[in-house]
């Protein structure tokens, strides 16, 4: 059958947004990532009062943010994370998900792909440059990864129409 014939009988919807649960998941992950990035940014700029280890023997001394890998082109990585999550939160809003404009879907996919690429670099930096894992940073990395999975699972169908 041709596409015109399909439209005449109304059997193929023009477009349908992703499941509400998936939409709200992306909102929650973006908001959580924004919150943690905000904390890491504050920690980066705070005076030595935060330069302590935990006497209980945490995995790290929570100071990956003071390492040489904590800046990229002079910009603190924590700030870059904050900057990334702001538009990601915007792209995750239900009203934006409902947009039939394919450019929004492309932008969302491109943004989350850039984010996951940066996360892979940061993991490399933690393992091979700093030699320490930052638990708070790993929380952000996980949020970006889950957003990547969510956007791929919800966003690709939009691009196939």
């Amino acid at each position: 059958m041709t596409a015109l014939a399909d439209a005449e009988v109304g059997t193929v919807p023009d477009w349908s947004p992703p499941r509400p649960s998936l939409v709200w998941l992306t909102v929650a992950l973006s908001a959580a990532g924004l919150g943690v990035s905000g904390y890491l940014t504050a920690a980066h700029y705070t005076s030595p009062s935060l330069l302590v280890c935990s006497a209980s023997g945490a995995i790290d001394c929570a100071k990956v943010t003071t390492s040489s890998a904590s800046r990229l082109f002079g910009i603190p990585v924590a700030v870059l994370g904050l900057v990334w999550f702001v538009p990601m939160l915007g792209l995750s809003l239900p009203a934006v998900w409902r947009s039939p404009d394919s450019r929004v879907a492309v932008a969302r996919l491109a943004w989350v792909t850039a984010g996951i690429g940066f996360v892979v670099y940061l993991i490399y930096a933690e393992l091979f440059v700093v030699g320490a894992i930052c638990l708070w940073c790993s929380t952000v990395h996980l949020a970006v990864f889950l957003l990547f999975v969510a956007v791929l699972s919800a966003g690709l169908p939009q691009l196939r129409r």
Partner: peptide, 27 residues
Amino acid sequence: DKPPYSGIDGGIPFIDFGNQWSIGGPS
């Protein structure tokens, strides 16, 4: 050994000078 005298609860290093002054972190 807790905020505001240390960055976190149980933060180290922590030096207590006779309960009059403290150093909580690297100087």
